[in-house]
Structure formats: C-alpha cells, structure tokens
C-alpha cells in the first residue's frame, strides 16, 4: 500500500554536532491524523522541515506518495502544505495578496473563489484587504493556515498550530482539521505540546524524544496498552493503617485515611477488583462511594519520556 509519507532511516546531524534525528522510520497512512508528541528539542520540527524541503537530511530517505523528496521534489512538494511553528508572515502585504501568492508559488493558477472560501472558513473574509501587521496573533495564525491550504494540498503539516492561541481558535482549528480529513481526505500531521489536542483529534500518536521515534501507535491502542486505571474508594470510617489481609494489593491510603486508591493494569488477565472488594468486606471496611479513572495520554507521554531519559 502506498503511504502518504514514508520515512526510512532518516538522520540529521547539524553542523554544531547536534544529532536532531537518529534513524527515524515512519510510515504515515493516507487520510490519517497523526500527532507527533515530544518535549522541546526532541526533533519534531526538524523532521517536518526535512519532509518539506527546508532542511537537508544527513542520511535516509523520504518519499511523499511514492515521490522521493530530493529527486522528485516538485511532485513531492506539490502535495504538501506547511503551517510552521513561528508566525512568519509578510507584514506589509494584505491578507488576500499573501494567500494568493502562496497558491502561485506552488504552481497553481489563480482561483479567487477558492481563496474566498478559505478566508471565509477561517473567518478572515472581512480582513482580506487588511495589511497583516494590523492583525492580532490569532488572526496571523489563521492567515498562515490559509496560505498552507491555498494550493489544495493532500498532506498538511501543522507544527504546533495552537501554541499561544485562545480556546475559541483552538476549537475552530480542530474542527477545520477534522473537516479537511473528512471532506478532502487530507492527511494531517501535527506536532503539539497539548496532549489534549492529540487525544481529541489524532488517530495515531508518535512520540519523539532526543531525535528518536520511541513509538507510533493507534491512540486508542496506546491508551489501552499503556493506560493504567485507578479505582478510588471513599470509606465510611477513617482507616489508620492498611490491614495485612490487603497487603497483596497495590493500595494507597489517602486523604487522612478516608480514601483508598487501587491502581491496576487494564491489560492484566484479572484486574483484582472483585477480590479486593471481597477482601475489604471481609476486613469489615465499608465503602461510601467508588470511582474509576483512566490515565490520560499526558500521563502516558510523561512516562514514556521519563523512561528514555
């Protein structure tokens, strides 16, 4: 099966000696939303920059819909739209001109009706004749998205698109990303610091740390595999210490002895909940209330990054 993007043994060592990427292998499927997570300096932006042609790779191969990014750079780049992390905009241009310029730069003939639709979708229509320097930070971010979409790309890179934007714009962007995928079949790769973002919209999650791709996994599968659950039991009476009969369980006494927290693995053959409740009953500990909670993608991410330190 042809992948949207195929990355093989990709490495990048900068002149300073910094190994930003080390033998990264990654296949990105057509029409998926892939979230790349990683701390600052992990190599996310370098990876995107190489695929888009902004940074030269040291080693390895990258192909976009089967087109090599170096020998067939035209065919490869035509398919890609990029929204970079920084707000790089032509300050003195109008919104309309800068978005139209982006379309031309990618070899597409003018299509004013498409630019109009884009600006309307991104609530920029009433600003179309404004110079970019007159726009707010959030509006500039929208302009950058419009520029990246002006040539109707099949693959869209969003490098931390919601960094520093308000909640409303973030929600708008998520909606736009979903619509692009559903209506246009656009493959979307986004890097983010906001785990909730990945949790909200991604199909798959990749974690990068220190230039290495630690894992790529279906989001649901990842949470199922690595996600731990915890059972919280609010007790009727304060418990000074844990009875010996409960010693075999991973239990913590919290909230001054009013709460018992039991952590268990969702992948284990038996969660142990049934026997725990029976043992509690046998020990004469009565329960007022109970609650279960699954660890978030953020917890999983922190755990993974900690493990690779």
């Amino acid at each position: 099966m042809q992948h949207a993007i195929s990355i093989s043994k990709l490495s990048k060592v900068y002149d300073s000696g910094l190994a930003a990427l080390q033998e990264v292998d990654l296949d990105i499927r057509n029409g998926e939303i892939l979230a790349l997570l990683g701390p600052n300096g992990a190599g996310k932006t370098t990876l995107i920059s190489i695929v888009c042609g902004i940074v030269n790779p040291t080693n390895g191969k990258v192909s976009v819909q089967g087109h090599d990014i170096i020998s067939e750079f035209r065919a490869a780049r035509e398919l890609i739209g990029l929204v970079p992390q920084e707000l790089h905009v032509e300050t003195f241009e109008t919104v309309w001109d800068t978005v139209s310029y982006s379309r031309g730069l990618f070899g597409k003939k003018p299509k004013p009706e498409l630019i109009e639709q884009l600006l309307r979708d991104l609530t920029l229509w009433d600003k179309k004749d404004n110079k970019i320097l007159e726009l707010s930070g959030g509006m500039k971010r929208r302009v950058m998205i419009a520029k990246a979409l002006a040539h109707e790309p099949k693959i869209l890179f969003l490098d931390e698109p919601t960094a520093g934007v308000d909640v409303e714009l973030r929600k708008d962007m998520w909606q736009l990303v979903r619509r692009l995928r559903e209506e246009g079949g656009v493959t979307i790769i986004l890097t983010t610091h906001y785990i909730e973002e990945a949790e909200e919209i991604a199909d798959r999650v990749g974690v990068i740390n220190k230039g290495r791709l630690i894992l790529v996994e279906e989001k649901k599968e990842l949470m199922r595999k690595l996600g731990k659950k915890q059972l919280t039991l609010d007790l009727n009476d304060v418990l000074e210490t844990l009875p010996e009969a409960l010693g075999r369980y991973d239990l913590d006494l919290e909230n001054g002895g009013e709460r018992l927290v039991y952590r268990y693995d969702t992948q284990a053959e038996r969660t142990g909940i049934g026997s725990l409740l029976a043992d509690l009953n046998r020990a004469g500990i009565s329960i007022k209330d109970l609650d279960t909670e699954q660890s978030s993608l953020e917890d999983i991410f922190v755990t993974l990054v900690e493990e690779t330190r």
């Binding site: 042609g53 780049r77 890609i80 920084e86 730069l105 990618f106 520029k147």
Partner: peptide, 13 residues
Amino acid sequence: VGTIYEVLSAPIS
C-alpha cells in the same frame, strides 16, 4: 522575517 520557508518548501527550482 522567516517567510523564506515558503519559497524553500515550494515545488520550484
């Protein structure tokens, strides 16, 4: 201003 990224990532020689 950094807008060179667009020229470098465009399908142009």
